[in-house]
Nucleic acid binder design. Structure first.
Length: 696
DNA sequence: GAGTTTGAAACT
DNA sequence: CAGTTTCAAACTC
């Protein structure tokens, strides 16, 4: 099938183009020059970025310290070396249940370019970590826990540590590691590290749980990182460094990703996101690898937080955003790291994803993913509550597919999953096994085709992969003008064009996105429960919206449609407390930096992220989340975006008919503030630390 | 599960 | 840019 398809695809101009590009390269694959170039290429994007997010040596150092164990190095080496070999999804690398949850998704992917550490490796790591932790506990004050650990563990450590050092200290090496691989030069470079981190993280968590076990406790995270003071601190430091510096070093990102993955078992999502990453560029590609390989498993069973993949889409179009993305990613991961509590709700992934999305990309896809995630999450929980309900079952299935970025499923018959009709493609993720698509080209194997198609689509509409729903904080007067009446300040970027559904069904993208219709909508007979085009309906202010919300009947309807809403109610109280407590203004100032540029030029950006964040965070219940979401958004919205970017308003970016958006100009600067704010938010929002063991 | 409806995406 | 067609999700039965 694929071959045939590929041929067919190749026949198209796009594909031909891809081939042309690919073939020439292959000719020179073996060339030393080619290798050299390959090795360099990954770095370039970063340097070129406005905000240089070059790999932060400090971060590496931290990591190094933390992961000096011989195994690490060996693992690292082996991973790098075999990265190419990981393509075989059938490999039983993840046999253990514990890891399985977290890692399986990757394992199952057809591409499997980003295989996580094998179960054996993980086990080993766990053992090591456990030892290490024990050691640290015994010697909490041990200044050189790492060294001690090394000595304790084995003599090989020195060698390994050296390797690790080299690995860490030489970003170039890391990035170029896989350069030899013609097909996936970039991917390899990052994946190993990612895998490694994931493994480590899992190991740590497992160790903690096993040894002490307070997995379910609220303070678990802290303990986790504080107990093994050295390692924990180092990890934290690395995270901090990333955040503070705003440097989106690959390592930092990886770490965060790791956290994210570990906590949420989001690996699948990550894989699926690979598409986005790939699009974005070499770096993305690296990250993407992880995701790409797992398209097979992702699918699945778990509700993955979809978000991440989507974000990346933007990257593709805006390489410059990559850094931003990375940073966000870092934040996200960071958040996870700091506030594992989110895990309980699956939020962690969402946050990560959101952050990624926000970071840059334009993210329709992100948005969608978030939605999906939320939906998925919600559904899962709902299911738990009422597993028997057929409707819920259906929803669950649907949402699972939609929601998770990773779990999004399509049924494309004619589009080959290379058009925006395909939800997976639109979301920036590869199709996975659960998809019922025919002649699907949206797979890692057709990466070139996918990327080329994406480019084509983006050339037509730079924001094609941007989030459709924008959660405006309302900070921007401009935005407010348009959306002041909308609940939660959220709006569909382009607006809908509903004629018959009354904007009361999911046919309506506004409704589907849980946002009210706006002046941008050309809908007829709008009855959007989340806010009518004419301003009637949902309350005008966020606060009102949150407080008042829709009437009971609407609520019931919404709950039926968005099961997560119910949950949200509870969450609002538990999770939102912090936000509510915080004065919006203050929050906004802090948050502004990341707030999605929703409207802004940043193509990629942030709005999607914000939306995702909102939704995902809150399970996407549309209206309700509004406040929370908004708060978050505000919190993160970059000032420059709010202030004045010409394109800052969704409205601005839309063409008269609302269909075309001007390409965003990007300059994302990721202020440390933004990052910090995000982090703060997380900390606050995470009252307790749910057990890491459950994987959702 | 099949068929219909719907509106976005794509095309002209 | 508007109109039409294509497409796949959402929905209904």
């Amino acid at each position: 099938m694929e071959e045939d398809n590929s041929k067919g695809v190749m026949g198209t101009p796009e594909k031909s183009k891809n081939n042309e590009i690919a073939n020439p390269i292959s000719k020179f694959e073996d060339s030393p020059v080619f290798n050299f170039i390959n090795s360099l290429s990954p770095i370039k994007p970063v340097k070129s970025l406005p905000i240089t997010q070059t790999i932060n040596p400090l971060t590496f150092e931290y990591l190094q310290s933390v992961f000096t164990s011989p195994r690490v190095s060996s693992l690292k080496e082996s991973r790098f070396l075999r990265r190419n070999q990981l393509s075989d999804p059938s490999k039983p690398e993840f046999s253990s249940n514990d890891h399985k949850e977290n890692l399986d998704p990757m394992a199952s992917n057809s591409d499997a370019s980003n295989m996580p550490p094998s179960s054996e490796e993980c086990s080993n790591l766990i053992v090591e970590f456990s030892k290490n932790l024990e050691y640290n506990r015994v010697n909490p004050n041990n200044p050189n826990s790492n060294d001690s650990y090394e000595n304790k563990i084995d003599q090989n450590k020195q060698n390994t540590s050296c390797d690790w050092d080299d690995f860490i200290s030489s970003p170039s090496n890391l990035l170029t590691f896989g350069s030899s691989d013609n097909t996936e030069p970039h991917k390899q470079s990052v994946d190993p590290a990612t895998n490694y981190y994931t493994c480590i993280k899992n190991a740590i968590q497992n160790t903690l749980m096993v040894s002490g076990g307070r997995a379910g406790e609220s303070h678990e995270p802290e303990n986790l990182f504080t107990q093994p003071e050295e390692e924990s601190e180092m990890m934290m430091e690395s995270s901090k460094t990333t955040v503070d510096v705003n440097a989106g070093s690959s390592i930092s990102n990886l770490c965060e990703n790791m956290d994210y993955q570990h906590l949420s078992g989001l690996y699948r999502g990550m894989k699926r996101r690979s598409l986005v990453y790939n699009m974005a560029g070499p770096h993305e590609k690296h990250l993407a690898d992880n995701s790409s390989s797992d398209s097979g498993n992702d699918s699945s069973q778990r509700v993955l937080p979809p978000g991440i993949g989507l974000h990346l889409n933007a990257l593709a179009s805006n390489p410059n955003d990559y850094n931003n993305v990375v940073n966000h990613d870092s934040l996200a991961s960071r958040r996870l790291l700091i506030g594992p509590g989110l895990h309980a709700n699956f939020h962690p992934p969402i946050f990560s994803g959101q952050e990624l999305l926000r970071t840059n990309v334009t993210d329709y896809s992100l948005e969608r993913e978030i939605e999906n995630v939320d939906n998925g999450v919600v559904q899962v929980e709902n299911e738990e509550i009422n597993p028997s309900s057929p409707k819920k079952k259906r929803r669950r299935l649907e949402q699972a597919g939609e929601g998770e970025g990773s779990c999004k499923r399509c049924n494309c018959k004619k589009s080959k999953c290379l058009k925006l009709y395909c939800e997976c493609f639109a979301a920036g993720v590869y199709c996975v096994e659960p998809c019922a698509c025919i002649d699907c080209f949206n797979k890692p194997i057709h990466e070139d085709t996918v990327l080329a198609t994406r480019k084509q689509i983006e050339s037509r509409n730079p924001l094609a992969f941007a989030p459709k729903v924008i959660r405006g904080s309302g900070s921007s007067s401009e935005i407010r003008d348009d959306f002041s009446k909308t609940p939660a300040s959220a709006r569909h970027k382009r607006g809908c064009n509903c004629k018959k559904s009354g904007c009361l069904k999911k046919y309506c993208e506004c409704y589907q996105g849980g946002v009210g219709c706006s002046i941008n909508c050309r809908c007829e007979g709008c009855k959007n429960a989340f806010g009518r085009k004419d301003g009637s309906g949902v309350s005008s202010t966020d606060h009102e919206f949150e407080e008042d919300e829709t009437n009971t009947s609407e609520k019931a309807e919404m709950n039926a449609i968005f099961p997560q809403i119910t949950i949200r109610d509870n969450l609002d109280q538990t999770m939102d407390y912090s936000l509510h407590a915080t004065p919006l203004t203050a929050v906004r100032q802090l948050a502004q930096p990341n707030k999605r540029p929703s409207f802004s030029s940043i193509p990629s950006s942030n709005f999607a992220a914000s939306q995702e964040f909102e939704k995902s965070s809150f399970f996407q219940a549309p209206p309700k989340f509004g406040q929370f979401s908004e708060t978050i958004e505000d919190y993160e919205m970059p000032e420059f975006l709010l202030e004045g970017s010409p394109n800052s308003g969704a409205k601005l970016s839309l063409s008269p008919n609302g269909k075309r958006v001007t390409p965003p100009k990007r300059r994302l600067e990721r202020s440390s503030t933004g990052l910090r704010s995000s982090r703060k938010l997380i900390l606050r929002s995470i009252p307790s630390f749910p057990s890491l063991t459950h994987n959702q």
